[in-house]
Amino acid sequence: MTLPSWQDEKLGTMKRAALWLLTVVEEGNVFTKEEVKNAFPGISQADRRVRDLRDYGWKIDTHREDALLGQHEQRFVAQGQPVWEPGKATKSSSALTDTQRRKILTRDGNRCRSCGITPGQEYADTFETAQIDIARRKVKLPNGTSSVQPIAECNRCRVGGRSLEADLSAVLEGISKLGGLHKQTLTDWVAADEREFSTVERLWADFRTLPAESRDEVRKALGLPAA
């Protein structure tokens, strides 16, 4: 089927933007806000109409999802609904409203549930600050089915955790096997929604991030042979 022209002004801006992405930018390529502005001169909300396409299943990444992108760059990853077709510009029921988004962020403590960083906090050893948004995490339920659930995550963890599947059944099974002392410890952590890590635990976590050559230096310092 021949696509309508993205330059057809009879179409709405969002429909034209979708066609522009498909025929000019093309999937997998990067575009900028300035290019959107130049493609739709005189339309002040053109970049917003591009963002609106995400509500129709279009995958458009920013630097928050793709660490390789600059702050003003976006990547057209995949097409969603063909919104230019009659009846197709209907929002997916899975799209989050602003109210739902705020509720999830509040529920998750306004921090990344994967690494614990908070909005605006700098990542260790960098000048990059964290941005928290809503990701969708696949969760394996005790009955064997899977459910996609929203979770607050930072830009780094969202990029690295897209293929993760959390296993609720394994967590619940593990809890059922805990002894009294360990179960109480976990209960306290869950109640506070945080835990303090010991110096040894922090060193272990730092060790795991080291390249192989540096890990061998640590092994040497501990009297162990190189791996």
Results as ranks from 00 to 15, higher is better:
G87I: 03
Q71V: 15
I117R: 02
L96K: 14
I104G: 02
T145P: 00
C157E: 04
D61A: 15
L22C: 10
P211N: 11
P86M: 13
K10S: 15
A152C: 00
G174N: 12
R102V: 11
S93I: 06
P142T: 07
K103N: 13
R156K: 14
S214Q: 13
Q81V: 07
Q74S: 11
T145N: 01
A192T: 03
A170L: 13
E194K: 15
R48W: 12
T23M: 08
D55W: 01
D206M: 15
W84G: 08
K91V: 05
F207W: 09
E27W: 05
D61G: 06
K33E: 13
F127G: 13
N155H: 14
V139L: 10
A17L: 11
G179T: 13
L21F: 06
Q71L: 11
R195E: 00
G179E: 14
A67R: 09
I60T: 12
L11W: 09
W58I: 08
S114V: 11
G109W: 01
A212P: 10
R75M: 03
L11A: 08
A192W: 06
V218N: 07
L210H: 13
Q81C: 04
A166F: 14
S92I: 03
G120R: 01
A95D: 10
S93N: 07
Q45K: 06
Q121R: 02
G161Q: 01
D125V: 06
I117W: 01
K59N: 10
V139W: 12
L181C: 00
D167H: 15
V190K: 00
G223K: 04
I43C: 07
R137H: 11
F207A: 11
L11I: 07
Q121C: 00
K103V: 06
K138L: 14
A227Y: 10
G116H: 04
T99V: 07
R111S: 05
M1R: 11
L224G: 08
L186P: 01
S94N: 15
R64G: 13
P142G: 09
K177A: 08
R75A: 04
K10D: 15
K140F: 12
I134M: 06
G160S: 09
N38P: 02
P4K: 02
W189P: 05
T23A: 06
L68C: 07
W6K: 08
D216Q: 10
P119M: 01
F76T: 09
Q100R: 14
A39D: 09
S214V: 07
Q71S: 12
Q100H: 08
I60C: 13
A166W: 14
T185G: 14
G223T: 03
A226Y: 02
L3Y: 15
G87A: 03
C112T: 02
P150E: 00
E213R: 13
E165Q: 15
E34Q: 13
G12H: 05
